[in-house]
Every structure is written in C-alpha cells, then in structure tokens.
Design a binder for these strands. Sequence first.
DNA 1: GGCCGTCGATATGTATACAATGATCGCGTA
DNA 2: TACGCGATCATTGTATACATATCGACGGCC
Lengths: 243, 243
Amino acid sequence: MNQRQTVAERGGAGRTGKNGEGAERHEEIHRSISDAIIEHRLRPGARLREDALAEVFGISRTGIRKILQRLALEQLVTLTPRRGASVTRPTAEEAKDVFDARQMIECGLMPEIALRITDDDLRELRDMARRERQALKSGEQSTAIRLSADFHARLARISGNATLADFVERLCSRSSLILAVYGNPGHLGCESHDHDDLIGFLEAGNGERAQAFMGRHLKAIEASLSIVEEEAEAPDLHRIFSD
Amino acid sequence: MNQRQTVAERGGAGRTGKNGEGAERHEEIHRSISDAIIEHRLRPGARLREDALAEVFGISRTGIRKILQRLALEQLVTLTPRRGASVTRPTAEEAKDVFDARQMIECGLMPEIALRITDDDLRELRDMARRERQALKSGEQSTAIRLSADFHARLARISGNATLADFVERLCSRSSLILAVYGNPGHLGCESHDHDDLIGFLEAGNGERAQAFMGRHLKAIEASLSIVEEEAEAPDLHRIFSD
DNA sequence: GGCCGTCGATATGTATACAATGATCGCGTA
DNA sequence: TACGCGATCATTGTATACATATCGACGGCC
C-alpha cells in the first residue's frame, strides 16, 4: 500500500532539486499542515497517518515524521506513543493557560509596539484587518480565523523581540485550536472592528490605551468560549475509581 | 569508524525492553545533552556529530536526529543545513530579547505565585537555594548554573500556568547559554543570597515586592554580562566593506 | 447469548543502506 | 612560495526494510 508513490515525484521534479530545496519543501509542508489545522480544515482529534501524509506530499515517512514532531513541539498535534499523530484537542485548563499567557505577553508588548510602529507596519496591519473583515463578510470563516491569528502574530513581531513574538505566534495557533473546540459556531473570536480600533490607538502612539484595549479584546474572546469539559471518552469509570 | 558500536548495547539490555522504554530512553538522552549544554560542559559552538552521539548513547542516528531536532526547536542547538548540529551561540540581540522576555514573564508571574505557593513549595525552593549556594561554595560552577536555572523554572511552575512555565524553562536554558558566551568567569549570574531573599517575600505573601525584587534580580544578571559582539570569525572584512 | 481469547491487519519505531553535498588536503603551475 | 584546482573523504539527508505493538473481528467457550 505504501508502495504506491505519487506518480509525479519519482521521475522528474522530485529528484531534481532535491537537496537544496529539501528544507524549504519541508517548511512548505509544515505550513500546509499547520494552516489546515489553524483554519479548522483538520479538526481536533483528527488522525494524521504518516503513510497518508507521505503519499499526499510525495515525500517519504522520514520527512513527515520530522514535521509531525515539530508540530508536536508546537503543541498543534499530539503524538501518542504507539497510536500515531492526531490534531491536539486542548483541555479547558490549557485554554485558560493560553489566554492568560496571551494577556500577559500581548498586552505587555503594546507600549513597545506603540513606540516602534512604522507607517509601513500600519499600512500592512490595516490591509490584514481589511482582508479579515472581507473574509468574514463572505463567509470564509477558515480564512478569517487564520488572518486573525496572523494579525496578532504580525503585531507582536513589531516589538522587535523575536523570542516573545515566537511565543505569541504559537499562542495564537493554539488559540485557533481552542476556538475549534470551545468556540460557538456563529461567533468568531475577534470582533470585526476590534483590530481596526487597535490600529487607531497604535497610530496615535497611545501604548497605554492600546494595552488596555488588547486586554479587553482578549477577555472578550475568552468570554465568548463555552468551556465545558466534555470528557466524552472514558466517561464514568475514572470517576468511579477516583473514589 | 561508526561500526564500533558500544559493547553493551547489542547483546542484552539494549534489545530487551526496547520499545516500551524507548521513549523514556530518548527523554533521558535529551536530558543528558541538555544538561551538558546548560552546565557549560558543551560550550557554544561545539559541534555535535550524529555518529559520535549515536555511538556514545548506543542508539542509532535516527534517534539522535530526533533529539537534535527537538533541541534545535528549543534553540539550544543550531542545525545548519549541510553542516550538522552545534551548540547555539546566542547573539547579543538574542540575549537582550531573552532577558526582556524573562523580565516580562517571570515578574508578571510573581503575584500569582505569591498567592498559590504552599509550604511544600517553600521547603523545596529553600532546598534548591541551599544546594545552589553549596555548589557555588565548593566551586562546582556547572552544578550551580543548572540549579539556578532549575530554581527559576520550578518557581514559574508554581503559578499553575503550564504554558508560561514552559516558556520560562526554555528562557532559563537559553540564559545559561548566554552566560557561557557573555558572562564573566568569576561572576556567576545569580547572587548567592538573592534566591533566599526572594523566597522570603513569597513566604510573606508579598507578591508586589517579590515582583520588584525579581525585576532587579534579572536586571542585575543582565548587567553583569559583557555583551560585546565578538564576531571573531570574519573579522575585518565586513567592516571594510561597510564603508 | 454474551464474553474472552486469539488471529490478522495496520501503523508506528528503529536501524541501516544509499545518495548527495560540502570540506579538506594534496598537487601542479605560475 | 603562494594560489588555484581537483580528488578524496567525512558527514548529513533521504528512503526503505524489518521488528513490534495496538486495534478490530471472528470464533469458541461458558
């Protein structure tokens, strides 16, 4: 079964630029899977079989495993020892932790961002916000969710602190997973005009108000979640044995 | 050369409990390498050849690669595409970012920690601080450095926010690398009594003072560094061409 | 009729073999 | 003597083969 390799790869392009672009190809595949998860095209709990992925992307399992491990470290997928990979299903506790962390970091970054933001940044952010509104209006919820995460990540990047920006990026990805599990269908995380308002404060150089606004923004997202621990899987036995 | 496998592994124990303990074994190796880096037994820039590591730990390159990739994501080692792995040499900019991040997160966590800290926590922290002082006194600088990082990580864990605690743990590991590059030999990062003082504030439930103290503590460490971009590698040419 | 044990299929974990690339060293020539 | 060039070697990147554990289903047994 795993012998059936994708037709195109073997002969031509697959071999040709193999090594130089190998790393970039992996990067690309990582992004593909990552995006699919963030956009909820792969729902939490979905299994990610190595063979299937290897066939889809036309590389061998070795490369897929590497990517899956990276995704696991980013906590987008969960690697169960003999069971393989699946899209992470965040717990209620993780959800709380993630939003607390975002509250601390993203808000804390605002003053610095207000100081350093440039006209180019403002233009780009406005464009992202516009595209996000547009996606929401045309019902492309997947795209809107990803753009929203991108917006927050891009914002953090302006602070100049790459380490914290990486943290924020990962927190936003995980937030997207959390929305998939605990979000209400109609109600997307970010209000459509919030991001524009935030841009306004930053343009005015008002770090304090931006910080406060971001705080409310995140609280609003968190409040919109229906966090009820489902625990549908091993329903009663654990409770019985915990007595 | 790579044929010389470690004597013990092949026949007996290596094969026996192979799978069940495989994951734990990897965890163990990860810790071994990680500790060696944090304790400066592996200095920044040191090359980590896959074959050599595979031989030392008695597993094949496959497992080693997995571990190296994880270390790379934690930014303790750097993976250069065709050159292999080496211990990361943090740049001055990264050093600043890491300490700014620690300032934000560790300080921000203090109030919550002061609220949640238990007697058991206090006892354990005091023990760690004591062992750290002791290691310093007996000149075991490697041990002292690791214990200091452990202390900060353990502290963060008390906050109950696993996500932020993970961040702090990684920041502390990287700080250890930074100390290896920019630290002054005689002057260890943390003053020996600082941690005890901090414990005092936390025991008193005084989150505010603990926060302020942690701020000064981290600033003091940062200030003790000699951050001068060495750039010993391509020494003069760049400067010439920048004219 | 329901439950337990066993068998087969499927997928992962690990090791090894092969290929490609960058580095190092030696040689020839100016 | 120093520089450029070429070959060999060391080391990583990738794929594949084999071993092993888990899950589902079927059949026998109580």
